[in-house]
Computed example of a mutant assay.
Amino acid sequence: MSNHYPATLKLTRTLIIGNSGSGKSWLAKRMAEHLQVPWTDLDLIHWVSDEHSIARPRNEALGMARVAASEERWVIEGVYGWMVSELVKQATALIWLCLEDEDCVNNIRQREARRDEKEELLIALLDWAGSYRTRQGSSGFAAHQRLFEGFSSSKLQLMNRAEVSAFVSTVQQTN
């Protein structure tokens, strides 16, 4: 991917997609702080509890996501293609963190280092992240690829942590 960002990206309303563990929250937090815009993590909308075990009813989650996307400026990030596809029309930029599944699994292991390796929810999350390329449904690679390819405004695909870090540095220098 070319490094002509972010001058060519309209970061007014930025949507960030990618696998679990790809760095969406890390990137969104830094962009939102620098651009001084609200940041919405779709995990906090999708899940009722912190433990990621009880999903919010779909219509309620979509309603909350639409409210976040109705703001004038924002950064919204998440893996949930079914929610993202509802918000993509309001976005001025789409960033796809397209890291290798193995890198995402390793990132989750680092992030969750204090948790018990045998904990069911952690095992499920690691399995989920490891299946991104083959996973069917709106939260898998193929669905994210379709969203990315169908997005007609400014977009950027970042393939590894170094590209993500370089992008953050560029955003912080230019805006």
Rank of each mutant, 00 (worst) to 15 (best):
I76M: 09
W39R: 05
R56M: 13
N175H: 14
H34S: 00
F141G: 06
N3H: 12
S25K: 08
T174C: 08
L42Y: 10
L121T: 14
N19L: 07
I123L: 13
Q90N: 12
D50G: 10
Q36M: 07
L125D: 02
I17H: 00
M1K: 03
L11Q: 01
V88L: 15
E119S: 05
A28V: 05
K29N: 07
S2E: 09
E86S: 11
C104H: 14
D127L: 06
E117A: 15
R135Y: 12
I16F: 06
A93I: 02
R114L: 03
E117N: 08
L126V: 11
S154H: 07
S165A: 11
Q173F: 13
R109K: 15
V48S: 01
I108M: 08
R146E: 13
E120S: 04
E163F: 10
A124R: 15
A93R: 12
V48W: 11
A143F: 14
L158M: 06
Q145G: 03
M83Y: 12
N160P: 14
I16R: 01
R58M: 02
V37G: 01
F167C: 07
Y5N: 04
L99Y: 15
A113E: 15
P6T: 09
V84R: 13
L121G: 14
Y80E: 04
S2N: 13
T14I: 10
E72V: 04
W128S: 01
Q136P: 07
S165W: 05
L15W: 02
S138W: 06
D41T: 07
W26G: 00
E120P: 11
S20D: 00
S70A: 08
D116F: 11
V84F: 04
E117P: 00
S152H: 13
R115V: 06
L11T: 02
W39M: 06
W39Y: 12
S152W: 11
E60S: 10
L27I: 03
S154W: 04
